[in-house]
């Protein structure tokens, strides 16, 4: 496996979507290629950071009253 192939199929590998044979090739490449270890580390951190962004936005109790009023009012205007 080359670094190009590693980078290309990285997300499929992380998602567990690669067949066992290819997944094995990924692990063997990682064992001998520090560059791809570095690349994988940064990719994982990136995906985790975006994941946190998603988790941080919780559903509010309700739409703020002023926004409710504005939306209902603009319906009447439109």
């Amino acid at each position: 496996m080359t670094c190009r192939e590693f980078a290309e199929f990285l997300d499929a590998w992380l998602a567990g979507l690669l067949p066992a044979e290819q997944a094995g090739a990924f692990r063997r490449h990682l064992a001998v290629c520090p560059h791809c270890v570095n690349y994988l580390d940064g990719y994982r951190r990136t995906v985790d950071a975006v994941e946190q962004l998603r988790a941080a936005e919780t559903v509010p109790e309700e739409v703020p009253a002023d926004l409710v009023r504005a939306i209902l009012a603009s319906r009447k205007e439109s």
Binding site: T2, R4, H35, N38, Y39, D41, A49
Partner: peptide, 24 residues
């Protein structure tokens, strides 16, 4: 990332710096 004809990184990737990790 960009790769050479034989599939190696043109610029070998570095790990995230400590500052980048802290910032995130």
């Amino acid at each position: 990332p960009h790769f050479t004809d034989d599939g190696h990184h043109v610029e070998p990737p570095c790990p995230f710096s400590d500052a980048a990790v802290r910032a995130l």
